[in-house]
């Protein structure tokens, strides 16, 4: 990402060629600059502004009142807690499952492209399709999961009532583990084979090789996958909107779903804007941590 800074050329010494180059550059860039100004920077300015307004038409200035409310509001706090649990659960799960699958798939196997693509399918499927499908599978009366468990002699469950959050974490893991597998596979392929050969010569067993070579050298990938998974976990929406409706008793009231309801059901644009900004700050903080660590952690082989 770092590129050499353009040499600072005094205006008088800029050649006609350089000026022509700059003109062409701006001509080609014009649509993009307009786009990012109108559809990214204007909305960000708008939401910061709206987050300081209150009242049914979001037209009364209230300073940081909405933010103060957010920290006191039990519903917002509950939603943040639920979302954090969801993000941690999906991240830990996606790392464990993704790494395990990657270790299994990282060898010369017949049909390995087929394995990889099959595992990747849910990640490329709309959350609407996945949410509706699992809602049906998990249905306590008509769902197939309980029937299968019953026939296997296993206890049946009212999944979405007794363990709603764990259940949508599991559905999300079903959706994304194939994707984290692909990221770990790319990481594994970056580890030079000679290390393993040297370790084997020195008498290191498979576990020793995993903990002393694979895991440390995979650290940048693991960091990347964790940050990516936390960030997308914090933004999950469809799981709550489609599968659980945020319930029962707000146990799956994912944050973006909470924002959506506050904005478009309760029509409280000021407060929902402040809630959005708060989550954005959390996400930006995670991204900055990743950029910092990524720069330091570039592994030298």
């Amino acid at each position: 990402m770092r590129s050499p800074a353009p040499r600072a050329v005094p205006e008088a010494r800029r050649t006609p060629i350089a000026r022509r180059e700059a003109r062409t550059a701006y001509l080609f860039l014009a649509p993009a600059l307009v786009f990012f100004a109108v559809f990214f920077y204007t909305p960000i300015a708008d939401i910061l502004n709206t987050s300081t307004l209150t009242g049914p038409h979001a037209d009364r200035f209230d300073g940081l009142g909405n933010y103060a409310d957010a920290f006191r509001d039990p519903a917002a706090r509950n939603s943040f807690k639920v979302t954090l649990l969801f993000a941690v659960g999906t991240t830990v799960g996606a790392i464990v499952l993704g790494l395990a699958l990657a270790l299994l798939a990282n060898r010369q196997l017949r049909g390995r492209t087929l394995f990889r693509l099959a595992l990747l399918v849910p990640y490329l499927t709309s959350i609407a399709v996945i949410g509706l499908l699992w809602q049906n599978i998990l249905d306590p009366q008509t769902g197939i999961l309980n029937r299968v468990l019953d026939e296997l002699g296993l206890p049946t469950q009212q999944w979405l009532i007794t363990h709603p959050l764990a259940t949508i974490v599991a559905v999300t893991l079903w959706m994304i583990s194939g994707y984290t597998m692909m990221l770990f596979l790319a990481g594994l392929q970056g580890i030079p084979q000679v290390y393993y050969e040297a370790a084997t010569v020195d008498g290191a067993g498979p576990w020793r090789r995993f903990f002393s070579i694979t895991l440390p050298l995979l650290a940048p990938t693991t960091l990347f996958v964790s940050v990516m998974a936390v960030i997308s976990g914090l933004q999950a929406f469809g799981q709550a909107y489609i599968i659980t409706g945020g319930g029962p008793a707000k146990q799956t009231d994912l944050y973006v779903y909470h924002v959506y309801e506050t904005a478009f059901r309760d029509r409280d644009f000021g407060y929902s804007s402040a809630l959005s900004v708060l989550l954005m700050l959390v996400i930006v903080a995670f991204t900055v941590v990743q950029l910092r660590a990524g720069r330091r952690g570039e592994v030298q082989y």
Binding site: A22, A32, F36, F40, P43, D46, T50, L279, V284, T287
Partner: peptide, 27 residues
């Protein structure tokens, strides 16, 4: 291309990667 404010503009565009969609949704 070399042109004035090149790096500033590039950073401004790449910084939008940090902005999740839900932030833009209400505005």
């Amino acid at each position: 291309f070399r042109f004035p404010f090149r790096n500033t503009l590039l950073v401004a565009i790449l910084a939008t990667l940090m902005i999740p969609f839900f932030v833009r949704m209400i505005p």
